[in-house]
Structures are given as C-alpha cells and as structure tokens.
Design a binder for these strands. Structure first.
Length: 434
RNA sequence: GUGAUCGUAGCUCAGCUGGUUAGAGCGUCGCACUGUGGAUGCGAAGGUCGCGGGUUCAAAUCUCGUCGGUCACCCCA
C-alpha cells in the first residue's frame, strides 16, 4: 500500500516548530487585546455565494482558487479563502453594528488552490483585524499602527507602503485615464498586461515584466486623479502616521487584488521573502458591508500571513532559542520506577507549568541523561536503589552540573514541593542554555 | 493553469560515460564504563533508490508518465 502523505501545499506542524507558532500567536493576541479588539472565529466553510459576492466574481480567488464542494444536501460550500467576507457575514448575522462600531481580530487557516511556492501554500494561516463603523482616517491609522506594533514586537524590519485607490467617484475616472494611457501602446505591453488592459488596467501598475516598465513609469498616478474627499482623507492618514511616528513610503503602484477595497491600501513588505514580499496587507473597504446586504458602514482592516511572518523571523536569525526548562525524571531499576509514579503525579499537580517528563524504559543512566538533554530539561531528578534505601532523591542542574541530595521522607506532595523549590531557586537558565 | 529544477537511510548528501552484495557523515541503539549527560574507540540496526511503465543480458543511473518538494510566472498573505 502506498504511503499517504499530507496533501500538496499543506504541512504538519510539529515540535519544536509548533512552539514558535504558539509564541507568535500569543504575541498577536496580546497586541490585539491592547487595542481593544475581540476575537471572532467563523466556520471553516461558508456558502460559496458569500465569497462570490464579497470578494468579487472576477478575482482570481473566486475564479480559480477556491476549494468548493457540494454537501450531501446539495449546497455549494467553499473552504474559507479569506477572512473578511465571513467576518462581515457574522457581524451582520448577529447584528453587531446595532451596538455601534466593532473591533474584531481573527487567527486561523485559509485555503486557496494554488501552486505551492515560497511563502505560499494551499492551507495557510492569517492573523488580521477588522474595524467597523469609523469613516475617519483615525481608524486607518489605528489598524496600521496595530500591524506595525505586531511586526515591531518581533524585531522585524519591513517597509510600509501606502496608497489610495479612491472610491466609486474617482476610481472609474482613473481606470479610464489608465486605459487611455496604455491602449495606444498595447502591442508594446507584455502579454499579461495586454490581458490586464481589458480586465483591470490597475493591475498593469505592479507588472513585473521589463517591457512594461517605461510605460508604467509614465502612467498617471491615482493620486493625481483622486477626488477631493479621497485626497483629503489620504492627506489626513499621512499626517496621523507622521504624528504617531510610523514610517512609510507612498507607493502609487500598490493595488489590491480584492474588489472591495476603497481609499487607503497598504502593504508591509520584507526583502527576505523572495517573490512573495508582502507579509501583511490591508486597507479600507467602505462598500463591502452594504454589498453584503448590511447597512452602509465603513470598514478597514488587514491580514497578516503567519507562514511568511515566521519565515522572516527565521531568515533574520531572530528566532530566540528555547530556554532549558523542566524536570526530567531518571529512574534506575523496577523498584524505583514504581515508586516514582505517584511522585511524578504529585510533581505535576503542583508544578505550575513546569514540565515534568519521564522515560519509562529501562535504559542506562547515561542514555537517560542524554534524553533529558534532548528534551531540553533544566533539572534531572534521579531515583535508584540507593535513594530508595536512604529515603532521598538526587536533583541535578543540567546546566551547571551541580547536584544535591534531598530528603524524601513524608508524603509525596511535600517531597514535590521540596523538589520544585530547589528547581525554582535556580532561576531562569542563563545564556549558556541557548 | 504555465515554466524550470530536484526526489537515494530519521537528517544532509555521494554513487563517474548503465554492470552484479547501494555508500559516507550526522543521528539512533549497544559495548568498552552494574548509577552521572555534549569526548574517544568498536559494533549494530536502519533503504521496495518517490511510484508506475518502457529500453536492455543487466536500470539508482537511460526514457516516458505520474505524484511530491523547491523556485519563478499568473495572482496573492
């Protein structure tokens, strides 16, 4: 029988890598809470219709990347390819906007049927926030600031680019201006851009084809065409970013792929990600909620790719080594192994998060020490015939190799307390542990 | 969906223009060393050479297909 492997573009998350995920997830939740965002969790699958209407019928996501299936009741379902549409659906379903503006964050998997590549998978994970109900530029800046804090708290260097893509008033004008600019030179454009010219001229702006470069350089920018309210909004966003000390560059070539964006769009990019430079991206989507049948409500948010984020952390070598922690129990002989079971139980009950591990196999002491080391334990607790006879136990600091003999009379809870007190007295493992 | 490149032990890889029992380092396990861990020496376990077909007296090696990894395009986090 053939071995079954994880599906293409998916990955198992196993120790010690899973610990890094947990660490990042904890940081993300802390920052979100600090900004007053509450967590929302939505189903892994939704009606296909939600994404068709919410993301845009002609987007790549809807046209070719969705995992869609029919359930046994004949309903068309799709594995969540992005979070914003489901979040808006849930917000409307529970009528949250009746209570005024809402701040929500999410953290979990998305699914897109794409060819795997650096920083791109069929199941990937996103953290993001959505801020509903504020029309003013302060909300744009709040959301950018939150993203910036998340990235900064991990010590990463990325560049923030911002742009405005206008609204329903000025964007159509811009499309026409772009079309007028490129159409006369259609034959000089790359084949991809010739296609984009008809479908979505904005996309030509971030073309990577060398032959498009000159024409893109000379193209009019959105910022030239912005209507008065959009221009004012964008100016305020820039002013407020300056005020809170978040560095950015204005990049008129930033275009978002999803139909629902309006006005402010932004991307955080890293040079460590190959072709997938964007680690976090978002913007304002003032028309989306109404488009999904809700009351006209402004919104702004972003999504951050967990895999890409962690990839930068690793390539920058800023991944902190896991500290040596925990107690590894070493027993010698059947009598000790039996005696130690209730003692380990007592240790775990009162260990308050200190991991207590034990190897039940009858290995030599040297081998058990090696395993304790591999498990990254800080302290070894040794129990053999000698200790049983003298009613003691030996504790040894695996970092300094200093050891001690402790009294082991009385009940197990008291012995466990003695061991844990000895453990805690060592303090955190110092640099030598790393 | 398009293109390039790679799949040999748990990991990293060697294996020349096809030639018989497929190797190394690291790791694992054992012994030297009845109870003290990053050392040394000796030894052992571990492989349907991704999978399937073809060419050949003979295929890890050539060929076709397929699956998977990696990278790029499209597009996106």
């Amino acid at each position: 029988m053939d071995k079954i492997a994880a599906p293409r573009g998916t990955a198992d998350l196993i120790p010690p890598e899973s610990a890094r995920w947990q660490d990042l997830e904890a940081r993300l939740r802390v920052v979100a809470r600090r900004f007053g965002y509450g967590e929302i969790r939505t189903p892994l699958f939704e009606s296909t219709e939600l994404f068709v209407r919410g993301v845009g019928e002609t987007t790549d996501i809807v046209e070719k990347e969705m995992y869609t299936f029919e359930d046994k009741g004949g309903r068309r379902m799709t594995l969540r390819p992005e979070w914003t549409a489901p979040v808006v659906r849930a917000v409307l379903e529970h009528n949250l906007l009746a209570n005024g503006p809402q701040r929500l964050y999410y953290l979990g998997p998305i699914f897109r049927y794409e060819r795997p590549q650096a920083g791109r998978y069929r199941q990937s994970h996103q953290f993001g926030v959505e801020c509903f109900g504020f029309e003013g530029p302060e909300a744009d800046v709040e959301v950018i600031s939150l993203a910036s804090d998340v990235i900064g708290s991990c010590g990463l260097e990325v560049t923030l680019s911002i742009n405005s893509i206008g609204d329903e008033v000025c964007r159509p004008r811009y499309r026409e201006a772009l079309f007028a600019h490129f159409a006369p030179h259609k034959d000089a454009l790359s084949p991809d851009s010739q296609r984009r010219l008809e479908r979505n001229p904005l996309r030509i702006l971030d073309s990577k084809a060398p032959q498009d470069r000159a024409l893109v350089e000379s193209a009019p920018t959105m910022l030239d065409v912005l209507c008065e309210p959009c221009a004012a909004h964008f100016a305020r966003v820039r002013h407020l970013l300056d005020a809170i000390g978040v560095a950015y560059v204005v990049d008129p070539r930033i275009v978002r792929g999803l139909d629902y964006y309006t006005r402010t769009v932004f991307e955080f990019q890293s040079s460590d990600l190959g072709a997938q430079a964007t680690v976090c991206a978002g913007g304002r989507y003032d028309g989306l909620i109404a488009a999904l049948g809700g009351p006209p409500t402004p919104g702004v948010g972003f999504a951050l790719g967990i895999e890409r984020f962690l990839m930068i952390v690793e390539r920058r070598g800023s991944a902190a080594a896991l500290p040596q922690a925990g107690i590894a129990v070493i027993t010698l002989g059947a009598a000790a192994r039996e005696r130690v079971v209730p003692l380990v139980a007592a240790l775990r009950r009162s260990s308050d998060g200190v991991p207590v591990t034990i190897d039940y196999n009858d290995a030599k002491i040297a081998a058990q020490f090696k395993r304790a080391e591999r498990a990254n334990a800080r302290v070894a607790l040794i129990l053999g015939d000698d200790e049983l006879a003298s009613q003691t136990i030996v504790v040894r600091d695996l970092v300094t190799r200093v050891q001690d003999t402790l009294e082991a009379r009385g009940d197990d809870a008291a012995i466990a307390e003695r061991v844990l007190a000895w453990y805690r007295a060592l303090g955190p493992a110092n640099g030598a542990a790393a």
